[in-house]
């Protein structure tokens, strides 16, 4: 009994009716945070590329082409793009799986008396719903502008992403849907970034204040930046020359 030693603390008897959830909630939250951060980084990167649309068709198409051959010749052909796509799809599956699992757990732990009083921001309460709509949007968006299938505008040309974009956004319902989704993504991102700092264990006062502000700024930048494009197309500022 010389140096202080620690005896194991027995885990309290498990209430039989409530097995520990698997995968553990904390692990799912960390997965959400990592995949969510990846998406935020991608959305920002994507935004920067999208804004090239204002420089002109050539520049924009060049960016799309460059994206396809990133890291050549390290990885041949469009290898990087495919590796990147695999990571994104994998992350999306994990993000959606974790999000739905956590949502179900939350509903179950709440029981029969859902909380109606909402003191905090709407964004936090709507993560699941904004997420689901964003998921629909992602599918639509890929069909529309990457694959040129089903929902794409007439005359889709894989070699001319610029024209595809203009044609797609010239359709008013698409422009409106795109705009609304961008607003929802902004909501999702603003609460998402704030969640990340919590899920990765950021407890410092200054860190938390900074991240809170950054979350809002990123959300607004993404919303305004991306929203401007369908508006510019509808207003005729951007057009096929």
């Amino acid at each position: 009994m010389s140096s202080p030693t620690a005896d194991p603390i027995p885990l309290a008897a498990r209430p039989a009716a409530t097995p520990a959830p698997f995968p553990p909630t904390w692990a799912l939250k960390v997965i959400m945070a990592l995949t969510g951060s990846l998406f935020v980084a991608f959305v920002l990167f994507h935004l920067a590329g999208n804004l090239k649309v204002y420089i002109g068709a050539e520049d924009f198409n060049h960016y799309a082409e460059w994206l396809r051959h990133l890291l050549n010749p390290l990885i041949p052909g469009s290898g990087f793009l495919w590796a990147f796509r695999a990571v994104m799809v994998g992350s999306l599956v994990l993000h959606v799986y974790s999000g739905i699992t956590l949502w179900v757990r939350g509903r179950r732990s709440r029981g029969n008396h859902p909380r109606k009083f909402i003191a905090r921001r709407l964004s936090s309460r709507t993560m699941f719903w904004t997420g689901l709509i964003v998921l629909c949007f992602i599918i639509f968006h890929i069909l529309d502008l990457t694959m040129g299938k089903l929902v794409a505008a007439d005359g889709f040309d894989p070699a001319d992403p610029y024209s595809n974009l203009i044609h797609s956004f010239s359709r008013a319902p698409v422009a409106v849907f795109y705009g609304l989704t961008m607003a929802l993504i902004a909501f999702h991102i603003s609460h998402g970034i704030w969640s990340v700092i919590n899920d990765l264990g950021g407890t410092g006062k200054r860190l938390r204040s900074v991240v809170f502000i950054v979350a809002g700024v990123v959300a607004v930048v993404v919303a305004i930046g991306n929203l401007s494009i369908p508006i510019a197309v509808q207003a005729g500022i951007l057009a096929v020359s």
Binding site: P4, A6, A20, T25, L28, F117, R120, S124, R125, H191
Partner: peptide
């Protein structure tokens, strides 16, 4: 001295009976 073990045990027990945190912030109010 038992920080790591405590975290594992308490958090596992917490997850038995209570839900996940979605950073809403009602609790602190």
């Amino acid at each position: 001295m038992e920080r790591g073990r405590r975290a594992r045990a308490m958090i596992t027990q917490m997850e038995h009976e209570f839900g996940p945190c979605s950073q809403i912030g009602e609790c602190a109010l």
